[in-house]
Amino acid sequence: MRTIRLYPRLLGAHFRSLLEYEADFLILAAATVLMQVVNIVFLSALFAKVPVINGWTFWSVVTMFGAVALAEGVGSLFFDGMWNLAWQINRGELDYYLVRPYPVVLQSSSAAIGINGLSNIVTGGLMIGAGLAHSAIDWTPWRVALGVLLLISSVVIKVSINLGTNAACFWLSSPSPMFAFAMHQVGDLARFPLSIYPIALKAVLGVVLPFAFISFFPIASLLETGTSRWVGLLTPVIAAYCAGLAAFIFRRGLRRYESAGN
């Protein structure tokens, strides 16, 4: 409990310094909103030509995009420090983390705030809202609960992939998060319905790096769209698996940590 209470304290410590760079803050926020606007423009152009892709309508794909934006937004707003892990390892900054009575992974992830996450969360939320409003599902309490559970799981998966791929730096000994960033780029493919891809790519996005469980599968379940509706119900299980695996990779990596200056 103390662990959870302390997290906003650690993260919040950076908040004040963030506001010092007001222009930076505004530009980043505007850029993120702009990016999502571009996404929507692109989607509407696409769907003007093809009204339905493998059973997916414009609004259901907007919902998927929203889920990705939400997951990424939470990842940057609350856990952006993970992207500094390579740097933290290389500079030996984990030394002090390791002698403090607080989980090392949380000290690392709270080391920075990605304020662009805030606009991602807002736009992502709006996209999900709009997408769901245009869908024909009837909202039983059970479905609302399912929706919330699926979205939480989706966020957990994204953050876990961020952690797992960044923790690869314990082995790669590179001072930049290039590997994790490359994996993140691969994840962009999962913005679209998985069913349009060849089987190999499906396997990568569904199993190896389960980006498809951030948006495609859970949204398919929630909206009852596409052919593989039941798979999305596994999202919480996949989330637990990803979180466990990422934590395991991080812990193993930490044992390899060699500090700096030797």
Partner: peptide, 29 residues
């Protein structure tokens, strides 16, 4: 245990010293 590495700081570079110490106070309870 308490550790000091003279070559490296554990203070938050973007916080005043008083705030760094207060964060540590809260971490250690």
């Amino acid at each position: 245990i308490g550790v000091l590495f003279g070559q490296r700081t554990q203070l938050w570079w973007d916080l005043p010293v008083s705030e760094s110490l207060a964060v540590l106070r809260d971490i250690y309870g």
